[in-house]
Amino acid sequence: MLNSSSVLEFKSTTFFTPTLVLNSNDIAAIELSLQEKINLAPDFFKHSPLVIDVRELNRSELDFSVTEIVETLRRIGLFPIGLRGGTEQQNSQAQKLSIPVDAGRDHDNSGVAHQSRGAGDVAAASMETPAADETDAESEAVAITSTNAGLSDQSAAPAVPVRSMVVTQPVRSGQRIYAQGDLVVMSQVSAGAEIMAEGNIHVYNTLRGRALAGVQGNTSARIFCLDLQAELVSIAGDYKTSEHITKEMQKKPVQIYLQDHALIINEIA
């Protein structure tokens, strides 16, 4: 049955993994604060794989032990599966613990702290989600910054390829949808509903609820809708409530984007 050539194959895949950005080297404080987050959503964090980002620590020249951090995380039920931004010495500590290191490019760091904060908020909120469309709430829910592939191929990380999510049913009041890529909604989004995407949001109907695009900090994300009656629109954290959406744009087909931290709403002619 098994043909020798099909026993295994190598593929290149991109995974999304939560990244834990450390801003302090105080292990006790880290543990306490993580425990608080976990208590908010025990199932979500249970056995959650994560990548430890220590760039901030090294930038602030704070002293710490990778071994100690890893042990703490493991003790509270998390699976550290990678280290990002470590020094040579830290990287070798990590490798001794069989934790791969991301030696890669140092990305633009400015948004990092901000992102992690935003992500935590969403994670906590996500837990109350009554929504239907969350096929995989665990991996879908949040605190997710993209991390490079090679890292997690050997890990137990749930694999979620980025793709756009298409919703054809109406999104009713109280429902919440989170897309890791773009989100396309063909039906109406009711007042009291919340749709979020790391990428763009398209609503080919009336948008009455809240729409948050670029929730992981993607400032070039946009929102498009055919009939704008939203309670709130947000891109990468900058938002406008319906009170601040001018009358001229209400009930119009519009696109919404970010320019110098200002939300621009334009009618699509």
Binding site: S173, G174, Q175
Partner: peptide
């Protein structure tokens, strides 16, 4: 109307058929 909308969301997600 808002509450009915909420109920419809629950029907679409929490019923046995869903």
């Amino acid at each position: 109307v808002r509450d009915s909308d909420r109920m419809l969301g629950i029907l679409a997600s929490k019923s046995r058929r869903a």
